[in-house]
Design a protein around this nucleic acid. Structure first.
Length: 514
RNA sequence: GGCGGUAUCGUCUAGGGGACUAGGACGGAGCCCUCUCAAGGCUCAAACACGGGUUCGAAUCCCGUUACCGCUACCA
């Protein structure tokens, strides 16, 4: 035991003397010269799926921090897990971030390209005595783990390879025995002042000597992350709080590599309505899904920002610049939140009505074209009319798709009569046909085709027949749109124009007679 | 199991020892407006996880319990 102690003590001496890492120093220079280094943050997704709403929110907070505090926001693709990483995922992540407007300030860093540095860092730690070779095979480890489990004991690597005599290690290395490199966790405890959680600390005895380099020479996550964050001069590591237990390991690595520690901020998770971690069975979880549902990026951002952050003062609906302005790191919350699609939709409706029809146009047009309702050229040809239509529809829509769904009667030549609407509003078909004929005559006699004269004329007709407005307007609405629901009837008439309105009424009368 | 994290209406949150009869928002119920549907306005129901402290006083501070979440790999 005494020998063990002194050996550890000797190693600690070596570790206490910060060893020089020439490759890092030059890149650190700017922060020495400027008194207040600019914050550098990164979003570091692994390309193993689509951009998840949780990931998007992490990216958003990193981005907001950078924008609010005048820092830089970087993107790193953590593609070291070759088996699961795909180019398609990488593209999806780019697309999602670009759609949201969360653009990065420097070239994308691909973690896989940094393999030589990861290996060099592992080697450095090995040479410095902060790490050691482990010859235990995966099978042996699995077995010991299973045994510990059977004894109901927590498993922790027992450091047996660290106890191997020097010449034995040499012998195995020369013999080509495969080995991993493990970090030797020192005694004591490791903690930090988290930006969202305040102080967190772990007793080192609960951290095992973790592997930093696999036997095939590729780095383990914790090493790759630290090596890259140092190289990218990241000053604030903001990520999901599922990384809290990785943090002490990473701090230990920073110290052993002689690098300055960044600040850490661990954001709470996002759960589904059932309180479980958000997953596919909760419905759409990919940012792209919401894009295709007709959600506005600014609404998505606004909604996501409110999950785990609050600007206070009962402020909820914010434009993106306003969010940047109000963002504050100390208003970040610790509690996991539930993703509620209903509130997202409401939020989208709010942003929809915040936009002018002209601002909405470029987002709606592609959706209308895609739905086959009109061509871009046709819409451009009567833009003023089109913007008027958008103004009418946006107020009763929560998504872009809602607008498209309602646009049919105004864009298509032919309309179909909704059976339910027909059944309800055209109950007495002969009487309705007669009423529509009278309506048609009244409409045909209207002077300027504008809301006021139209209303005057139709109300006069209703009164003459002893009817309430609704009794006249509802059957007319079905005749004009085929639906029981639409914007105000006079707006519908104006939108349709004189010719088409009269033609629709005629068609309805014919339909009722058949 | 071990370690770590979290705990205010169903949900997102305000709240940082007295201003709390706990505020706002989504969703729900209802009313108003009204030609329908929205939007808008108004009203209602709905929460401090539990137990101990500390204090004249606790949603707020401390401890414990419980519940939930995360990590516990030669995954990230």
């Amino acid at each position: 035991m005494g020998g063990q102690e002194s050996r550890t003590a000797g190693r600690r001496d070596r570790l206490d003397r910060p060893f020089f890492l020439p490759t890092y120093r030059p890149t650190l220079l700017p922060s020495y010269t400027s008194p207040m280094p600019v914050p550098r943050l990164r979003f570091a997704p692994s390309p193993t799926g689509y951009l998840h709403v949780g990931g998007a929110r992490t990216a958003l907070f990193n981005w907001l921090y950078a924008r609010h505090y005048g820092g830089q926001f970087l993107l790193r693709i953590e593609d070291t897990d070759k088996a699961r990483s795909t180019d398609e995922s990488t593209r999806a992540i780019f697309e999602g971030l670009v759609w949201l407007g969360l653009t990065w300030d420097e070239e994308v860093v691909y973690q896989g390209a940094n393999l030589p540095r990861h290996q060099a860092d592992a080697r450095r730690l090995l040479d410095a005595g902060a790490a050691y070779r482990c010859f235990c095979t995966r099978e042996e480890l699995d077995q010991r783990r299973a045994e510990a489990e059977a004894r109901k004991e927590p498993f922790k690597y027992d450091r047996r390879c660290d106890a191997l005599p020097r010449d034995e290690v040499q012998r195995r290395v020369s013999a080509g025995t495969p080995f991993t490199i493990r970090f030797r966790v020192p005694e004591g405890s490791t903690g930090w002042d988290d930006l969202v959680h305040d102080t967190i600390s772990f007793p080192n005895k609960d951290i095992e000597d973790f592997v930093i380099l696999r036997s095939d020479g590729t780095p383990i996550y914790n090493l790759a992350v630290v090596s890259d964050d140092i190289a990218m001069r990241i000053t604030i590591v903001m990520r999901g709080d599922d990384h809290i237990s990785n943090t002490p390991k990473q701090i230990l690595l920073y110290r052993a590599l002689g690098a300055e520690l960044p600040a850490f901020a661990h954001l709470p998770m996002i759960h589904g309505l059932d309180g479980k971690k958000l997953s596919k069975r909760h419905g759409a979880t990919a940012v792209g899904d919401y894009q295709h549902m007709g959600i506005l990026p600014q609404a998505m951002l606004n909604f996501l920002a409110l999950l785990g952050w609050s600007p206070g003062n009962d402020i909820e609906v914010m434009t993106v610049p306003r969010m940047v302005e109000l963002f504050s790191a100390d208003a970040l919350l610790k509690k996991a939140s539930v993703f509620d699609p209903a509130k997202l939709e409401w939020m989208n409706g709010q942003h929809l009505s915040l936009l002018t029809s002209a601002e909405l146009e470029p987002r709606v047009t592609p959706a209308i074209v895609k739905a086959g309702l009109a061509t871009e050229h046709e819409l451009a040809g009567r833009r003023e009319w089109y913007l008027m239509l958008l103004d009418q529809l946006k107020v009763r829509s929560r998504t872009i798709d809602d607008i498209v769904r309602q646009a049919g009667p105004y864009l298509r030549d032919e309309i179909a009569y909704d059976p339910a609407a027909e059944a309800k509003q055209w109950k007495d078909r002969p009487a309705t046909a007669e009423l529509l004929r009278a309506t048609r005559d009244a409409l045909a006699a209207v002077g300027p085709w504008e809301p006021a004269p139209l209303e005057e004329s139709l109300r006069a007709l209703a009164e003459a027949r002893g009817l309430g407005g609704g009794k006249l307007f509802q059957p007319l609405r079905v005749a004009l749109t085929g639906l029981a629901v639409s914007p105000g009837i006079f707006d519908v008439l104006v939108l349709l124009g004189r010719e088409r309105s009269l033609a629709r009424v005629d068609a309805a009368i014919r339909h009722l007679a058949s």
